[in-house]
Lab assay of single mutants.
Amino acid sequence: MALNTPQITPTKKITVRAIGEELPRGDYQRCPQCDMLFSLPEINSHQSAYCPRCQAKIRDGRDWSLTRLAAMAFTMLLLMPFAWGEPLLHIWLLGIRIDANVMQGIWQMTKQGDAITGSMVFFCVIGAPLILVTSIAYLWFGNRLGMNLRPVLLMLERLKEWVMLDIYLVGIGVASIKVQDYAHIQAGVGLFSFVALVILTTVTLSHLNVEELWERFYPQRPATRRDEKLRVCLGCHFTGYPDQRGRCPRCHIPLRLRRRHSLQKCWAALLASIVLLLPANLLPISIIYLNGGRQEDTILSGIMSLASSNIAVAGIVFIASILVPFTKVIVMFTLLLSIHFKCQQGLRTRILLLRMVTWIGRWSMLDLFVISLTMSLINRDQILAFTMGPAAFYFGAAVILTILAVEWLDSRLLWDAHESGNARFDD
């Protein structure tokens, strides 16, 4: 018995066209964080690309023209004298008006014999932002004059995390709450300039795509075929072959399989920071003279006294001054041990922890910024005066060393310790 099946006739004509040209192939790229070699397709503007294995951002879609970056830099340069030299806060102490600005706080630190601690604050609040705007201006002028731009481009990517104007702005709020127990506070004209400078700096850093600047100024022929001998440069993120001198053909720094002496430098910085954190938390970090009496505060006791007036601000200072430094030390110690013992479990967790400490590390400088600003506000000789204690130097040095330890660690070593050939990683 035959089955009668109805015929289905399409209502619209289906047209099949042959592909007349070869589909576009992607360029081969190595991930600078996990060293995976993959094919990167062509990316349009405002599109980002991520590593298929570790999800690290390979290409950032946010990109401004150099002219727009230069305009932002010149605007920031105009704001800087007002943000640093004009009063941020006014207080009335014992019937006398006192003005506080950024430069005055750094000068008070240096004047009291601790120039190293003052230079830490100076670099993060004044030096690094000033280098940022002058570097962008150098790129703008240098591109037109045919100057060598490689050193500036190499420095810009590392400079971003040292620009800490946003953290200093939080420190202004913390210092205001600490001082309000002794005097009446009012915002100064410099505060508005400083807030504007923070906003412009944040926007500029978020749109400063150094890798795209490398592509514009020093374009290189990408690798179009897969080759395990391809290496990625950690300076400019170019994937290719080393030249005859073993250097990256684009930025001219040595092109090595792994960062040289990464573990040794990381261990040295980490152990030194552990040693410095002990006096930083045991010795007094601030000293207040009130009517001839002397009151010393460690980091913890200062947080407890701050909690009596504002528990939320005390929580912020606790996280930045105690929780973050010790968390960074514990995480980095764990990561280094996992590399030495070739741990194969929990790779995803370790990668996330490394990215976390990379982002939060700079916030530990908050305590030094609060001390710097408070020193310029309260300084009335023996009637009422505020000065920093010996722990300030140890704390600042420990924070900087932990930042350097994270920067010096080559994250690809975590993958080397893991089993080879993993296309995915999980716990």
Score class of each variant (00 low, 15 high):
M1C: 00
M1H: 00
T5M: 12
T5A: 06
P6G: 11
P6S: 05
Q7T: 04
I8W: 06
I8V: 06
T9S: 05
T9E: 06
P10M: 10
T11G: 05
T11Q: 07
K12C: 03
K13C: 05
I14G: 08
A18Y: 06
I19L: 09
G20K: 06
E21A: 06
L23Q: 07
P24W: 09
P24L: 08
P24S: 07
P24C: 07
G26W: 10
D27Y: 03
D27L: 07
Q29Y: 05
R30T: 05
P32N: 06
Q33Y: 10
C34E: 00
D35C: 03
F38Y: 13
F38A: 04
S39W: 13
L40Q: 07
P41A: 06
N44K: 14
N44R: 05
Y50P: 01
C51I: 00
P52H: 02
Q55Y: 06
K57T: 05
K57F: 05
K57I: 08
I58A: 08
R59G: 07
R59K: 06
D60H: 06
G61K: 11
R62V: 09
W64R: 05
L66S: 07
A71W: 10
M72K: 03
M72E: 06
T75S: 13
L77E: 04
L78K: 01
L78T: 06
L79P: 04
M80N: 05
P81K: 12
P81C: 03
W84N: 06
W84E: 06
W84Y: 11
E86D: 06
E86M: 03
E86C: 04
L88A: 03
L88E: 02
L89W: 03
H90Q: 05
H90Y: 05
I91R: 00
L94H: 00
I96A: 04
I96L: 04
R97C: 04
D99W: 09
D99A: 08
A100I: 03
N101D: 11
V102G: 03
V102E: 01
M103P: 05
G105S: 02
W107R: 14
K111G: 15
K111C: 03
G113L: 14
G113W: 09
D114I: 03
I116E: 15
I116P: 12
M120E: 03
M120H: 03
F122L: 14
F123L: 03
F123D: 08
C124Y: 02
C124Q: 03
A128R: 00
A128G: 05
P129R: 00
L130A: 14
I131H: 01
L132Y: 05
T134E: 06
T134M: 13
S135Q: 02
S135W: 02
I136F: 14
L139N: 03
F141W: 03
G142P: 01
G142W: 03
G142A: 14
N143D: 15
M147S: 06
N148E: 08
R150I: 07
R150L: 03
P151W: 03
P151Q: 03
L154W: 01
L154R: 01
M155P: 04
E157C: 14
E161T: 12
E161M: 12
E161G: 14
E161A: 14
W162S: 02
M164P: 01
D166I: 15
Y168F: 14
L169K: 02
V170E: 02
I172V: 08
G173K: 01
V174I: 14
A175E: 02
V179W: 00
V179Y: 01
Q180D: 13
D181R: 01
D181F: 01
Y182G: 04
A183V: 03
I185W: 03
Q186H: 08
A187K: 14
G188F: 04
V189E: 08
S193A: 14
S193Q: 04
F194T: 08
F194G: 09
F194H: 10
V195A: 13
L197M: 15
L197D: 03
V198G: 13
L200I: 11
T202L: 15
V203K: 08
V203P: 15
T204C: 11
S206N: 15
S206M: 15
S206A: 15
H207G: 15
L208H: 11
L208P: 15
E211A: 14
E212Q: 15
E212T: 15
L213F: 07
E215V: 13
Q220S: 13
Q220H: 12
R221G: 14
P222A: 13
A223M: 14
R226H: 15
D227H: 15
K229P: 13
L230K: 12
L230T: 11
R231G: 07
L234A: 13
G235V: 03
G235C: 07
C236E: 00
C236M: 00
F238T: 09
T239W: 03
G240Q: 11
Y241L: 14
Y241H: 13
Y241A: 12
P242D: 10
G246K: 14
R247E: 14
C248K: 00
P249Q: 10
C251A: 00
H252Q: 07
H252Y: 04
H252M: 05
H252F: 06
P254S: 07
P254E: 11
L255M: 10
R260M: 10
R260W: 09
H261C: 11
L263Y: 11
Q264L: 04
K265F: 02
A268R: 01
A268W: 02
A268H: 03
A269V: 08
A272S: 14
V275R: 00
V275F: 08
L277V: 11
L278W: 11
P279Q: 14
P279D: 15
A280H: 02
A280P: 02
N281K: 03
N281C: 10
N281F: 03
L282I: 11
L283D: 06
P284Q: 10
I287A: 05
I288R: 00
N291F: 15
G293N: 08
G293E: 04
R294M: 04
R294Q: 06
Q295V: 10
Q295A: 12
Q295L: 13
Q295W: 14
I299N: 08
I299T: 12
L300Q: 07
S301G: 07
G302Q: 00
M304D: 11
M304T: 11
S305Q: 10
L306T: 00
A307L: 11
S309Y: 11
S309R: 03
S309T: 13
N310E: 15
N310W: 02
N310M: 09
V313Y: 09
V313K: 02
V313F: 04
V313M: 14
V313S: 13
A314C: 12
A314V: 13
G315N: 15
G315P: 04
I319A: 15
I322V: 11
L323F: 06
V324M: 15
P325D: 09
P325Q: 02
F326P: 03
K328G: 00
V329W: 10
I330N: 08
F333E: 08
T334G: 12
L335I: 09
L336S: 11
S338C: 13
K342P: 11
G346W: 14
L347E: 12
R348Q: 12
T349Q: 13
L352P: 07
L352R: 09
L354P: 12
R355T: 14
R355N: 13
M356I: 09
M356H: 10
V357S: 03
T358K: 13
W359Q: 10
G361T: 12
G361N: 00
R362E: 05
R362A: 05
W363K: 04
S364W: 01
M365D: 04
D367H: 00
L368G: 08
V370W: 00
I371S: 00
L373K: 07
T374A: 08
T374Q: 00
M375T: 11
M375P: 01
L377D: 00
L377V: 07
I378S: 00
N379Q: 10
N379Y: 02
Q382H: 10
I383N: 01
L384A: 05
A385C: 10
F386K: 00
T387M: 05
P390C: 09
A391L: 01
A391W: 01
A392M: 03
F393L: 13
Y394A: 02
Y394V: 01
F395M: 07
F395T: 03
F395A: 00
V399W: 02
I400F: 03
T402C: 04
E407S: 08
E407D: 11
L409V: 09
L409E: 01
S411Q: 12
L414K: 03
L414P: 04
D416P: 10
D416G: 09
G421R: 04
N422H: 12
A423P: 06
A423E: 15
R424E: 09
D426V: 07
D426F: 06
